[in-house]
Amino acid sequence: MTTVSNDQLVAMLRAMMRIRCSEESLAKRYPEGEMRTPTHFSIGQEAMAVGVCAALKQDDVIYSGHRCHAHYLAQGGSLLGMVGELYGREIGCARGRGGSVHLNSPEVGVMASAAIMGETIAVAVGSAMAFAMDRSPRVAVTFFGDGCVEEGIFHESLNFAVVKKLPVLFVCENNFYSVNSPLRLRQPPDLAIHTRATSYGLPAQQVDGNDVVAVYEAATTAVHHLRAGNGPYFLEGLTYRWREHVGPLFDTDQGVRSQRELDFWMEQCPIKRASARAQASGACTELDLRRWWKEFGQEIDAVVEQVRNSPFPKPENILDGTY
């Protein structure tokens, strides 16, 4: 039974479409060589970001890793700030100092994204600790991939959050690959990530990470749990990245991932599924969908144009922000 209204469904669908449309457009432009930063596209994984962020309030905080575009946009980071960063412009959210992997927008609670595996898992726990110390209802969320589960900091952070009973939501986006290393060769094959997480003493749940409604409902349950002061919660979503680990291309010809596998997951496209659901429930029409694609296409085109006409940072200001 779904708790999602048509308005909520449309809002989440549109958020995913906007992320997809922006990233597809950027991926298409990437070979032009103007975005000189290693770029990790979220294409295919939008439902996790959108479903979780839809369950949050504006004063909650989120943290992400290297694949941070979808999280940043889903929580309300500006498209201009992101595209500006990719193009290395002063107008970028990190003034051209951070790049694709360091998107942030503290005004809307996107506190930090970082390229080192698992780094921001602990940092989110720290924000949650501050909220708990202040008896505040705010919560912290950390998004990370299946690869981070192998890092020591993951285990240190879960233990700490449970011991201190902190309002932090661990969101593992399991896309089955760490760069080109398949999950089955890196972790015990018959012991799912969320199952292992429970051994630390926190509730953990696995969801269909390409079903935005399922993600939203699970995240809503989790956030209730956090705000009630019951300690941390763990959410594992099964999903799939369509493109290569870093860069705009498909990689099924590289001998790591098969076309058949990709085709299976493209069938499970979170936007396709949410669109079908929205149309079936009368939340939108085919015409609406076409109109929205066009709207987001025009938006990203305009933003790219604005960014390309905006100034680069000045080399004489290179030291700004070090201290």
Binding site: V61, Y63, P106, M111, A112, E119, T120, I121, A122, V123, A124, V125, G126, S127, A128, M129, A130, F131, M133, A140, G152, I153, E156, S157, N159, F160, V163
Partner: peptide, 17 residues
């Protein structure tokens, strides 16, 4: 707990807010 790396991150995350 014994978690020097995570606790450093915890400290940073609390300082960030």
């Amino acid at each position: 707990p014994n978690c020097e790396n995570a606790f450093t991150g915890v400290a940073l995350g609390s300082a960030a807010v």
